[in-house]
C-alpha cells in the first residue's frame, strides 16, 4: 500500500475532524460531493456533515470568518484554491490574524492551506510560492512540507498550534510523492532535517525544491562529490542552528528556492549564515531561485524559469571550484 502527499493531507484533515470537534474546513468547493479542486477534502463533507463548508469566492471573508471563529475557540482550516489567490486575503492574514495575539493577547489558531508552486502549464496565476511574503510579516508560522510524512504530521501540528499557520503544500508533489505508510509523529515544527549527509557542500532547500536538490546531489555523487541537503520543513521559524551546523561541516552553502529571488527564503538563509557563520564559509554562499518574471505558461519556458536539478548542479559545481 502506498499513500500520496495529497492523500496524506486529506488523511490529516480526516483525523483532525475526527479527533477535534473544534475543527472545520472552509473554502471554495471543499464541500458537497466535490471535495476541492485537488480533492484534498474528498468525502470529508459526507463523513463530517456541517463541518466542511463551501464558501463564496471571497478569500478575504473566508479568512476573516476563520479568524472570528478561531478567537471564539474553533480550529478552522481554510483551503485557498490556489496559493496565488490568497493575495486577496493578504489583509486578513497579515494585518488581522498576524496582529491579534500581539495586540490583544488572544491567540488566533487558524490554519491556511496554500496549494503552492509550479506545475506544467499553470502559468502566472496558478503557480506561485508565497512563503517568503507571509514569512516577512510578524505573527505567522509558515510551513513548507517536502515529504508525505511531513505533509501529514505538520498539518496536524499546524491545527494544534495556538497561532496562525500558513501551510504551503506543493501541488507538484501531490501525486508524484508516495510513502508506504503515515507516521504517528514527526520532527518538532521549527526543526530542519538533514535529508542527505555529505561533506563538500550544504544545499538548503524546502518543499518541491528539496527533491530537485536531492536529484542534483545524486548527480554530483557520481562525480565523487558528497553533498549535504537540509530540508528546512518550516521557513518560519527558520532553523538557523541546523543550517549553521551543516555549513560548519561542509564550508559551503547553496540555498535553493522556487520562489522569486528578491528578498526570499534563500536570501534570508544566506544572510543568517553570513552574519552568524561567516568564519565557517570557505567560499561565498550562492543561491538558485526562480527568475524575476511572472511564471510562464509554456513548459519550455516554465522548466527554464523554475530551478531544475541541472541548474542546481551547475551552481554547485561553480561553488565547489571556488
Amino acid at each position: 500500500m502506498s499513500i500520496t502527499y495529497l492523500e496524506a493531507i486529506r488523511e490529516a484533515q480526516a483525523k483532525l475532524l475526527r479527533d477535534d470537534k473544534r475543527v472545520f474546513i472552509y473554502g471554495q468547493d471543499v464541500g458537497g460531493t466535490f471535495g476541492g479542486a485537488f480533492k484534498a477534502t474528498k468525502g470529508l463533507a459526507k463523513e463530517f456533515p456541517g463541518r466542511v463548508l463551501n464558501t463564496p469566492i471571497s478569500e478575504d471573508a473566508m479568512v476573516g470568518t476563520a479568524i472570528g471563529a478561531a478567537m471564539e475557540g474553533m480550529r478552522p482550516i481554510v483551503e485557498m484554491q490556489f496559493a496565488d489567490f490568497s493575495s486577496i486575503a493578504l489583509n486578513q492574514v497579515l494585518n488581522n490574524a498576524g496582529t491579534i495575539f500581539w495586540r490583544t493577547g488572544i491567540s488566533c489558531p487558524i490554519t491556511i492551506r496554500l496549494p503552492s508552486g509550479g506545475t506544467k502549464g499553470s502559468g502566472p496565476f496558478h503557480s506561485q510560492s508565497m512563503e517568503a511574503l507571509y514569512s516577512h510579516y510578524p505573527g505567522l508560522i509558515v510551513m513548507t512540507p517536502a515529504t508525505v510524512e511531513d505533509a501529514y504530521t505538520m498539518l496536524i501540528e499546524a491545527v494544534a498550534i495556538d497561532d496562525p499557520v500558513v501551510y504551503c503544500e506543493h501541488k507538484y508533489l501531490y501525486y508524484h510523492l508516495k510513502a508506504d505508510r503515515l507516521p504517528s509523529e514527526g520532527l518538532p515544527v521549527g526543526q530542519a532535517r538533514i535529508a542527505r549527509v555529505g561533506r563538500d557542500l550544504t544545499i538548503v532547500s524546502y518543499s518541491a525544491m528539496l527533491h530537485e536538490s536531492l536529484t542534483a546531489a545524486e548527480k554530483l555523487a557520481r562525480e565523487g562529490l558528497e553533498i549535504e541537503v537540509v530540508d528546512l520543513r518550516s521557513v518560519k521559524p527558520l532553523d538557523t542552528a541546523t543550517v549553521l551546523a551543516s555549513v560548519a561541516r561542509t564550508g559551503r552553502l547553496l540555498a535553493v528556492g522556487e520562489s522569486f529571488p528578491w528578498g526570499g527564503v534563500t536570501a534570508e538563509v544566506i544572510a543568517r549564515v553570513a552574519a552568524e557563520g561567516f568564519h565557517l564559509l570557505d567560499a561565498a554562499p550562492a543561491r538558485v531561485n526562480a527568475k524575476d518574471t511572472p511564471i510562464p505558461y509554456h513548459p519550455n519556458l516554465w522548466s527554464a524559469h523554475r530551478p531544475s536539478s541541472d541548474a542546481i548542479v551547475a551552481k554547485a559545481r561553480q561553488l565547489l571550484r571556488e
Binding site: 478575504d60 479568524i67 471563529a69 496582529t99
Partner: peptide
C-alpha cells in the same frame, strides 16, 4: 484594524462559532 470592512467577516466567524 484600520482596514475598513475587515471586521465584518470576523464577526460572522465569531457568530458561527457560537
Amino acid at each position: 484594524i484600520s482596514h475598513l470592512g475587515a471586521m465584518i467577516s470576523v464577526v460572522v466567524g465569531s457568530l458561527m462559532a457560537k
